[in-house]
Amino acid sequence: MSEEPELTEAEALAAEHALGVLSAAERAEAEARMARDPVFAAEVAAWRIRLAPLLDMVAAVAPPAALWARIERRLPANDNDTDRERAVRRLRFWRGTAMGAMGLAAASLAAVVVLMGRPPVVVQPRPAAPPAPLLNASLMPQAGGPQPLFVAAYDPDRQALIVTSLVPPGTDPLHVHQLWLIPQDGKPRSLGMVEPGKSRAMPMPKPMTDMVEEGAELAVSVEPPGGSTDPQGPSGPIAAKGKLGRI
């Protein structure tokens, strides 16, 4: 697995931004990159679509009653400028908008005149292949508990597994969490380490992609630093386990 190419830096950052696991500084950097890089912005949007079903796994939380009042106080419209300054600002905005709209209308009219002189082009649509189903898994604690310790989503189109640890950082500094794929043959395959409180994008190259299917199991074991000492599978206890299923 370590010799296979992982997701690019941009793809991993886009996936983490879509999952909402970046720090405030990292999120600001990602959003600035989205503003100047349309390709990166499209990558984030694609991951948001793929991972949107995971939102159903998160319980809704009501915002504090005073939140909206704080937001209103921070809006630029509530700055202490004069009515005259606000009126001038609005006038400039609408004047620029009107000029832009007139230019757009003129350009559109010219395009229509050119297109009317061309013979019609018949385009035969190609039937689109149905997208492969997205799989997800909630890895529940083996000691019992209502909340998952890890969540995972597999995108067959990109052949990538996104794993997010919900374990608070620093819970057990003397051990590491190792992720395992247990396909239908029951033999564990190591997918690598998952750091507490973070997410990781893991590529699934051949022949691993054939094993990542509905009903396959994901498990996380607690191991010494460096991972399992058993080449056949986990050497430590299983902390969490869950099966992949369609969303």
Results as ranks from 00 to 15, higher is better:
residue 135 L to Y: 13
residue 135 L to V: 12
residue 136 N to K: 14
residue 137 A to Q: 02
residue 137 A to P: 02
residue 137 A to E: 05
residue 137 A to D: 11
residue 138 S to W: 10
residue 138 S to A: 15
residue 139 L to M: 09
residue 139 L to I: 03
residue 139 L to C: 08
residue 139 L to F: 06
residue 140 M to H: 11
residue 140 M to G: 07
residue 141 P to M: 04
residue 141 P to R: 01
residue 141 P to E: 03
residue 142 Q to S: 11
residue 142 Q to L: 11
residue 142 Q to G: 06
residue 143 A to G: 15
residue 143 A to Q: 13
residue 144 G to R: 06
residue 144 G to N: 10
residue 144 G to A: 11
residue 144 G to Y: 12
residue 144 G to D: 10
residue 144 G to I: 08
residue 145 G to M: 03
residue 145 G to R: 00
residue 145 G to K: 00
residue 145 G to Y: 02
residue 146 P to S: 12
residue 147 Q to F: 15
residue 147 Q to R: 14
residue 147 Q to M: 14
residue 147 Q to T: 13
residue 147 Q to V: 13
residue 147 Q to E: 13
residue 148 P to Y: 06
residue 149 L to Q: 03
residue 150 F to V: 13
residue 150 F to S: 00
residue 150 F to T: 02
residue 150 F to W: 10
residue 150 F to C: 02
residue 151 V to R: 01
residue 151 V to S: 05
residue 151 V to F: 11
residue 152 A to R: 02
residue 152 A to S: 11
residue 152 A to E: 04
residue 153 A to K: 07
residue 153 A to T: 14
residue 153 A to S: 15
residue 154 Y to N: 10
residue 154 Y to Q: 07
residue 154 Y to M: 08
residue 154 Y to P: 01
residue 154 Y to C: 07
residue 154 Y to T: 02
residue 155 D to H: 04
residue 155 D to P: 04
residue 155 D to Y: 05
residue 155 D to Q: 10
residue 157 D to W: 13
residue 157 D to C: 06
residue 158 R to Y: 06
residue 158 R to N: 13
residue 158 R to M: 14
residue 158 R to T: 15
residue 158 R to S: 12
residue 159 Q to P: 08
residue 159 Q to F: 09
residue 159 Q to A: 15
residue 159 Q to Y: 09
residue 160 A to C: 15
residue 160 A to H: 05
residue 161 L to R: 00
residue 161 L to P: 01
residue 161 L to G: 05
residue 161 L to M: 11
residue 162 I to Q: 14
residue 162 I to K: 01
residue 163 V to Q: 03
residue 163 V to T: 14
residue 163 V to I: 15
residue 164 T to L: 15
residue 164 T to S: 13
residue 165 S to Y: 00
residue 165 S to L: 03
residue 166 L to S: 04
residue 166 L to C: 06
residue 166 L to W: 10
residue 166 L to Q: 08
residue 167 V to A: 05
residue 167 V to W: 01
residue 167 V to C: 09
residue 168 P to Y: 08
residue 169 P to K: 02
residue 169 P to E: 11
